[in-house]
Design a binder for these strands. Structure first.
Length: 472
RNA sequence: GCCCCCAUCGUCUAGUGGCCUAGGACACCACCCUUUCAAGGUGGCGGCACGGGUUCGAAUCCCGUUGGGGGUGCCA
């Protein structure tokens, strides 16, 4: 077995994969790769996960999307019951036998009552010396020793906890099943995990886990607690309030590379001036010691800016390939059989320089594949109210019927000449034609689009709408 | 309540006692370019939470205050 570092990432399935989780996974992944260690992906087991295995699959998919996979495929999935259930119980038994843990027959209500009566919070150690053995309804509690526990954290330095502030916590429930805390520690031991990199919310529970490692006679792993990701209210990202599903960003046309790069800049920054850097740079330079201490806000605007840059970095072929899922999805606005790859390719480069996300691409090129463009009535009225607009439209229509050759530059010259005669600037003059042909007042460069659409269709649209003027 | 963490432009960050008159990026604003919209270019706005120390010198070190967050289950 390899003796290198072993990192683990253990999300709990909640129906989707969280951006905060993705960031933590990325931190683990970068480290595992740089230090040539192992990356253990294990999905925490919950009732939800057991009832809905597709949730677990979704997490594995989302991780794969951002380039992460477990080095130990066997752990890709719920593990809790299936792999180490025996080890959990064995560890509990050892702790009881050695005196590090003891049984207690108080119910949680009784614990609360005693706490209220004494004015102290939490469990008071009532059964510490009562010598109780295991029995149904009795919980196994850890005997927290006197003194203090120092957690050596790679991100935060030494964090000191006074053990007197930690109550004797439960290891085994009254029904004999292990608590998460115990299971987690035992799983880490069984998997020989050497580095635990997780979100800061786990820091307050770390001394408990560390005491368990100590009591079980093993050296604790290297701890590292990375800052939380928060919403605009500075609260921990929550699935209720916040849009945090990684899958959703994938579906909206964010590129995995952009997502990964952006996520890595939350709590860390690459050396040098550039923050848009390839993964190879990240992998070569990421260090936990350089991770920030304060929570970071997940800013979709900045993610979008990254995404736009990544889209523009794509070769034209890669861009076209990346667009495919969005051009052939079910909610595309045109009849699927009308889609013409050649037409799309002809306009791809001008679309590429404008896109922030891939999902907005169909809306930019839809006029090419629709029988008739979806006319923006408001834009139409506004455009045609401009003096000279009607004239430009009808004169351009006539000119385009016979113009040769049918090329963007020629179309441009012609229309601009007509516009000039009516005292209209370039942008103003093209507006009526743009709206008539594409349905909108904004869009890709007009003459390139006209060239791709072809004379017949352009003239047809200009004529159709031109007749509309008369009736309006 | 108790425990823990955190504190640089609106946001993400650089900064590890003098290179700081605090740098960059996103956002925003203006201008340039321009075929609408983008992209690109130039410029602008904007910050070390507060109070005490330590030091010749503090964004940086110490203490306190304030503010924010997290944890504290027979949840995971």
């Amino acid at each position: 077995m390899s003796s290198g570092p072993r990192f683990r990432f253990a999300p709990s399935p909640t129906g989707f994969f969280h951006v905060g989780g993705a960031r933590t996974a990325l931190f683990n992944w970068a480290l595992a790769k740089r230090l040539r260690g192992r990356f253990v992906l294990r999905i925490e087991d919950t009732d939800e996960a057991r009832n809905r295995p597709e949730w677990t699959d979704g997490i594995i998919d989302a991780l794969a999307w951002i380039g992460i996979r477990g080095d130990d495929p066997v752990f890709e999935g719920p593990y809790f019951q299936s792999h180490y259930a025996d080890a959990h119980l064995l560890a509990a038994e050892r702790l009881f036998t050695s005196g590090a843990a003891y049984y207690c027959d108080l119910t949680s209500e009784e614990v609360q009552e005693r706490a209220k009566a004494s004015g102290l919070s939490g469990y008071d150690g009532y059964s510490r010396d009562r010598g109780l053995g295991p029995a149904p309804g009795r919980v196994l509690r850890f005997r927290v020793p006197d003194g203090e526990t120092v957690v050596h954290d790679l991100v935060r330095g030494d964090v000191v906890f006074d053990n007197s502030t930690i109550e004797d916590f439960v290891l085994l429930r009254g029904n004999g099943t292990p608590m998460f805390l115990l299971a987690n520690v035992v799983d880490d031991m069984e998997m020989r995990i050497s580095h635990v990199v997780r979100a800061e919310e786990h820091l307050p529970n770390t001394p408990k886990q560390q005491m368990l490692w100590d009591a079980l006679g093993q050296r604790p792993p290297v701890w590292a607690h990375v800052p939380l990701l928060v919403n605009e209210q500075r609260k921990k990202l929550s699935k209720r309030r916040d849009k945090v599903a990684v899958e959703q960003y994938r579906d909206e046309g964010y590129l995995a590379d952009a997502m990964v790069n952006y996520l890595m800049t939350l709590g860390w920054s690459p050396p040098g001036d550039e923050e848009i850097v390839p993964w190879s740079t990240i992998e070569a330079t990421f260090r936990l010691e350089d991770v920030n201490h304060s929570p970071a806000f997940f800013d979709i605007k900045k993610l979008s800016a990254f995404n736009g840059e990544y889209i523009r970095m794509l070769s034209i072929e890669a861009f076209i390939a990346a667009c495919q899922p969005f051009l052939h999805s079910e909610d595309v606005p045109w009849p699927p059989e009308r889609f013409d790859p050649a037409k799309f390719a002809a306009l791809a480069s001008v679309v590429q320089s404008r896109a922030t996300t891939l999902s907005e691409v169909p809306g930019v090129v839809d006029f090419m594949f629709l029988d008739d463009p979806i006319l923006d009535e408001l834009a139409w009225e506004k455009t045609m109210a401009t003096p000279g607009a009607k004239e430009v439209l009808s004169e351009t229509t006539d000119a385009y019927r016979n113009i040769e050759p049918w090329e963007a530059s020629v179309l441009k010259e012609t229309l601009e000449a007509i516009g000039e005669r009516h005292g209209m600037k370039k942008g103003k003059a093209q507006a009526p034609v743009r709206v008539a042909v594409t349905g909108r007042a904004v869009g890709p460069p007009l003459f390139e689009a006209l060239e791709v659409l072809g004379r017949d269709e352009v003239v047809r649209r200009l004529t159709t709408v031109g007749m509309g003027i008369g009736t309006a």
